[in-house]
Nucleic acid binder design. Sequence first.
RNA 1: UCCCCUGUAGCUCAAUUGGUAGAGCGGGCGGCUGUUAACCGCCAGGUUACUGGUUCAAGUCCAGUCGGGGGAGCCA
Length: 470
Amino acid sequence: MLAVRIADLYKHSETHIGTTATVQGWVRTRRDSKAGISFVAITDGSCFDTIQAVVPNTLDNYESEVLKLTAGCSVEITGLVVASQGKGQSVEIQATALKVYGFVDDPDTYPISPKQHSFEYLRDVAHLRSRTNTFGAIGRVRHCLAMAVHRFFHEQGFLWIHTPIITGSDCEGAGQMFRVSTLDLANIPRTPDGKVDYTQDFFGRETNLTVSGQLNVETWCMALSKVYTFGPTFRAENSNTSRHLAEFWMIEPEIAFADLLADAKCAEELLKYMFRALLAERGDDMKFFAERIDKTCIDRLEKFVSADFAKMEYGDAIAALEDAVKKGVKFDYPVKWGIDMQSEHERWLTETYIGRPVAVMNYPRDIKAFYMRQNDDGKTVAAMDILAPGIGEIVGGSQREERLERLDSRMDEMGLHKADYWWYRDLRRYGTVPHAGFGLGFERAIIYATGMANIRDVIPFPRAPKTAQF
RNA sequence: UCCCCUGUAGCUCAAUUGGUAGAGCGGGCGGCUGUUAACCGCCAGGUUACUGGUUCAAGUCCAGUCGGGGGAGCCA
């Protein structure tokens, strides 16, 4: 008999009640009743809830196997689906057969007990933490949000471009990169002047893991108009915080013929689309997050999807901060036009001053990347950051500099070698158009949506400094 | 990388001014029960991260090492 997913059993319970069904999964709890039955709750990950099987002691393997079930055992249960006689669940299965696929070796030391574990501890047993309520929910939420991202862009006419993970350009400039090499570390080939001879390396040149798909995806934007990347991204920064990973997933749309406002609008619509999908499709998991992780998370998302985005000019943001200082708010770092805002400033803006996510636009050119479009005021570039309470920067984007002379002059000012960017510059030589894009950190969106405190707990296997087990 | 905090049973945590290690959960056995964070009784389980020091005495104080967490920087 084909097994039914527990989610389907609950979703279509009225059609299943009165029929015989088979479910397959892992035991969460077993409770015995001397009325001659045991209650076995099992989960298959298809939804938050477990299904309760009522197992009678008349089964052949009741003494030999059922009474030995502990958390984590894998089973297949067949029986009649009925409306539950007890409280706590709508339907249950009156088991007529229970097959054990695998017992838990030494239940005393099985790392996942039904009680509460700390997230720090669960990171040490990451191969098993997927069996907990929280990480099961995280897995379903990740999937829901990822599918929503693709649906949103597809419906808007964007094409998903698979930009490379290994990059040969040493000019991405968004942070420290991981080197990709097959050279023998114990015997590195050298050039006559003592440098590493990368011509002998696998690619015949120095290569790294990508820190952003942006430069590559811009080339496809200049042909397919509306494109995006969604894939893993790598930063070799020695960042040890609850908001940084060495390997994370990033969503980077690039829109031809778009300006900064259209860019911000796209980011707003994307985030709203994602969170609407989450509220609609994962009510069970969000209810759990609201009960156990962050009471305000559902309320926060509902407000987010129904309210217009707050927007403010960088200059106005600085003015608001300066005004706050005059009124007695204390910051560790001074505020004045031209600074790259510190975390404390961003947090105050989004958490205290605005009280929800805010898009800050048109930053001073001197603190932003070379490819951002220079504004007419000669002081700012068309950059925008979206700041969210509890996270800080969740989106960073800009309108790109499409004028070759302006791009070149900026690169000269910043001491960049134009030859290294030859193909990027070619885009400005051959049919250039205004365009804009942004980067959305997938895990940061999940943190915001669920209220989870640490980014290492919203990705299956976190990669961070000194952390690459599993 | 810097600053602060922290490391005790399989897990979550106690242990007063330094006085010789305890509870809940989980596990085993038994009792009770259409149970559901079940409940009740009994049992097992510890080189208090590691190394050294101070002291009559160290889980507790000091130094170092390693691990973890929070904050900062970098950013998504």
